[in-house]
C-alpha cells in the first residue's frame, strides 16, 4: 500500500479571510511505515489527517492510495474504501449510544459484509484492555475507554492504513504505551500507520516523523526522527 499526497492545500475562510490550514504539504507512507506527525494545536495536523483519510477533500493537490486519486472516487466507492482499507481514529470520537461497545465495533465490520468475525472483535477488545466492557453502553464509559472503543472500531476491518488523530489523548501512560505498541505490531505486519500526537511515547515506535507548523509539513530528521 502506498499513500501519496502531493501539494496538499486545504483552505478555510474565517471572517471573510481565506487562510491555508494545510499549505502545499507533500506526504507519503508505505506499508509498514509508522509515521508520527508532531505539531502544536492549530498547526493543521487534524486537517491534513482528515484529507488523507478521505473525509475532507483538499482545496488543491492530490492524495492517492496505490495510484488511485481518492477524491476522484464517487461517494459510494470512497466510503467503501474508507471502511475496508482505512482505519481512521478521529480526535473527538463518538459512539452510537443505542448500541453496546461490541455492537459499535461490529457496525463498522458489518457495513459492507454480512459476516462479522466475533473472535476478532473479542481479541481487539482484549488487546485494548476493554474486554470487560463488551456489553456496556457508551454512556457508561469514561473518555479513555471510549477512545479505545474507537481504536478497536478502526482496526476491526484489518485496514491497510491506520490514521489516528491524538489516539492517546484520554489515556494514561500505560494504556498509551499499549496503543502505540499495538500500532507498532501492526506496522511490522505491513500496515501503514499515521499518527498525529503530542505524546512523545509515540516517537519510540515510529520510523518517520513530520513536523507540522502553521500548515506546513516538514520532515523531521533531527531531534525525534529515526531516519
Amino acid at each position: 500500500m502506498i499513500l501519496n499526497g502531493n501539494n496538499i492545500t486545504k483552505e478555510y475562510t474565517r471572517r471573510g479571510e481565506t487562510f491555508p490550514a494545510v499549505n502545499k504539504a507533500d506526504f507519503f507512507a508505505w506499508s509498514g511505515d509508522y509515521t508520527v506527525i508532531f505539531g502544536e494545536s492549530g498547526s493543521g495536523k487534524s486537517t491534513l489527517l482528515n484529507a488523507l483519510a478521505g473525509i475532507s477533500a483538499p482545496t488543491s493537490g492530490s492524495i492517492e492510495i496505490d495510484g488511485q486519486p481518492l477524491y476522484s472516487l464517487d461517494d459510494e466507492s470512497l466510503s467503501k474504501l474508507r471502511n475496508e482499507r482505512i482505519g481512521y481514529i478521529p480526535q473527538n470520537t463518538a459512539c452510537l449510544p443505542v448500541f453496546t461497545v461490541t455492537e459499535n465495533i461490529e457496525l463498522a465490520a458489518s457495513l459492507y459484509k454480512r459476516r462479522v468475525d466475533k473472535d476478532q472483535v473479542k481479541s481487539l477488545l482484549k488487546k485494548l484492555g476493554i474486554e470487560h466492557l463488551a456489553d456496556e453502553y457508551p454512556a457508561n464509559l469514561s473518555g479513555g475507554e471510549l477512545r479505545r472503543v474507537s481504536i478497536a472500531r478502526a482496526l476491526v476491518n484489518n485496514p491497510d492504513l491506520i490514521i489516528a488523530d491524538e489516539p492517546t489523548s484520554n489515556l494514561d501512560e500505560d494504556n498509551s504505551r499499549k496503543v502505540f505498541s499495538l500500532f507498532g505490531r501492526l506496522a511490522k505486519a505491513g500496515v501503514a500507520i499515521v499518527v498525529a500526537t503530542h505524546d512523545r511515547t509515540a516517537f519510540g515506535y515510529s520510523n518517520r516523523v513530520y513536523h507540522m507548523k502553521l500548515g506546513s509539513l516538514i520532515p523531521d530528521i533531527g531531534e525525534y526522527g529515526n531516519l
Partner: peptide, 16 residues
C-alpha cells in the same frame, strides 16, 4: 451531528 460524522468516518455513504 457527531454520531453521523462518526458513521461517515467508518464508511457510511451520504445516501445511507
Amino acid at each position: 451531528k457527531r454520531e453521523f460524522a462518526t458513521l461517515r468516518v467508518i464508511g457510511f455513504t451520504q445516501k445511507k
